[in-house]
Design a protein around this nucleic acid. Structure first.
Lengths: 341, 341
DNA sequence: TGCAATTCTTTACGCGCGTAAAAAAACTAT
DNA sequence: ATAGTTTTTTTACGCGCGTAAAGAATTGCA
């Protein structure tokens, strides 16, 4: 970092004593040049702080090193966490990830894809909004850019889908709830934006049937991503009109459960697995905050780590040449027992 | 979107019947060409889907249209919310924002600045990590890129700072708590990463003195951004050893308060402003989740909207030529009364 | 030591667009 | 219609780097 300012690769090649094409090759892939050459370049990098112009680099390359990470709602810590996980893995693999959030708006999601197109990314990791996504826009995008979908599946789209085995989630937690108390009823949004919700409902129905219980579903109104508030209001309504036919409520997801817990508090209904409590509440996802609700929320944890690892692996395998058929990978959830159920 | 594929601006200029330099001018600023010209270009844009190559565009421009938005911790919904707000405003102003999160790690923050440098952004909106930030790296960055800091101030750095008036926060909520019950003690992390914490402590001390009460501060150990967990553990310790000299606890921020609420629950201590409850707990920030704690958290709300508006205004004023002296803008907080205090 | 295989240098062109300068064309106002 | 102003066209070059091709240098190995 000492001497005169380096303007471009030409000058940097000169001071490092290596020809420009070789330097270019080095920046494309350091392992592609001989060790002695590499160390001479790296020695020069120590003395001068030069970085290739990223715009000039990407102009001619068919394949850039950038990767898009798209989530439906960054203000949901669940997605923020998984985005961070994905980001780290991309960096480790030598790529430049860029974060995007659709902020719950389909039009925003479409705009993001438009912008991504002009970024010519090597690949994209995307969790779609779900029901409200502009499917044809996503389909068109997937046809042009290698894309791995996660969290929320759109059938047949993308190189691969990685998510959770929702039926297993339901089976697992329904079984636990039945073993430890009354069979649960199911609390959900009538028009969930995320397709996982439908699979969880079905999983609940199957699990209850399999265990020989009569299922009961409480569907509440509400749209959008303000899920805690929807759960709180719907919970209020369900509680005062006594719609829950069981003292145990399994929520479609943790954010809904968090809202329901608030509704219980506000209605004066005690929640917990303690026999003195009026009802038990369980969620699904292991949302980062579920540890801190009162009572702490019993839930079934998505395997963030496995999901993000597999998503990134699938993407880079495809990007780096493997021609695999589209594959769906689903990971099991782990029961997290806390005080709420 | 009908006819043959357009490869570059040359071809697009041909089909639109306008010369390439004029088309280039149009994409730089649509208002800079005559109305008749503009409508001919826009007519062509309807028929052919052409977008200028972003890499070629930015290669020669001294000033790109991209803006960096840097937050310390995206998994904190507070920052996710404000980032979204900033993002929207940048788009409305015709810029291309890119989101970055330091994920609580100083080394990551430095890397982000490095990457941003090579993106040659028109400007950057940054909330630093705080105490752990690599100040000299940020200083060096600010010298090269127009940067507005928000949330967490680093003295004299950047074009401007926009944040909250922390002493006003403390005064306001301490006054409220004193009027409605016992004067509060103050619950905080011993080594807070965010410098606002220090201002809030001082604000608490000043407020208590002004109101004629004896202040008491409970500082707990813990590092990093896992603030709820730190608050929970520290809260446990403080509760069992009866360190709170008042039945009212003002927390340095909402996330700490959320942890303390969990500790109270786990210790069997009832929280609320109801006289039957054992203690009152208040937070600061109006974290998105604070509405849904049990009991819902009384807090003082940061004016997200005003902060993000002013931050963006300051940045674009500077980017577009105004030479203003560095200015610090602080917004008042609004008391949000809920059940916890 | 010699020969083939690998790696590097030299030379040269192109990518898509920014932008400058001079000339031509289109407006505006009188 | 005319002069003056604004906008567009024409022409031309450069940005920083990717990349191809041919020859030179370096290596590995027997």
């Amino acid at each position: 970092m000492s001497e005169t300012k380096i303007k471009n690769m030409e000058e940097f090649a000169a001071v490092s004593g290596i020809s420009r094409p070789t330097v270019s090759k080095y920046f494309h892939d350091p392992a592609s040049v001989r060790v002695s050459t590499r160390s001479r370049i790296e020695a020069a990098l120590e003395r001068y702080d030069y970085r290739p112009n990223i715009y000039a680099m990407n102009q001619n390359r068919k394949l850039t090193k950038s990767v898009g990470i798209v989530v439906p709602f960054m203000a949901d810590p669940f997605f923020a966490e998984i985005a961070r996980n994905l980001e780290q893995r991309c960096i480790d693999a030598g790529y430049r990830p860029t974060l995007f959030s659709a902020h719950g708006q389909p039009s925003f999601e479409t705009d993001i894809l438009d912008n991504l197109l002009s970024l010519k990314p090597a690949g994209v990791l995307m969790a779609p909004l779900g029901r409200n996504s502009n499917k044809s826009a996503i389909e068109k995008f997937c046809a042009e850019v290698p894309t791995v979908l996660f969290d929320s599946e759109i059938p047949d789209l993308g190189l691969a889908f990685v998510g959770s085995d929702n039926p297993q989630f339901s089976m697992h937690i329904v079984d636990y709830l039945c073993r430890t108390g009354q069979p649960p009823c199911f609390f959900e949004m009538k028009n969930p934006s995320n397709p996982n919700a439908n699979k969880r409902r079905q999983g609940y129905l199957d699990a209850m049937e399999q265990l020989g219980h009569t299922p009961q579903i409480v569907s509440i109104a509400g749209n959008g991503w303000d899920i805690e508030e929807i759960g709180r209001q719907g919970g209020h309504a369900a509680l005062v009109t006594q719609q829950f036919g069981s003292n145990t409520v399994l929520c479609s997801n943790d954010r809904l459960a968090i809202g329901l817990l608030t509704a219980c508090y506000e209605t004066g209904i005690s929640v917990g697995r303690d026999p003195k409590c009026a009802i038990r509440v369980a969620g699904q996802d292991d949302h980062p905050f579920s540890r801190f609700t009162c009572p702490p929320l019993t839930t079934i944890a998505q395997d963030y780590d496995a999901i993000s690892r597999r998503a990134v692996e699938s993407l880079f395998a495809a990007v780096e040449g493997d021609e695999n058929p589209r594959k769906t990978t689903l990971f099991d959830g782990k029961l997290i027992m806390r005080d709420s159920a």
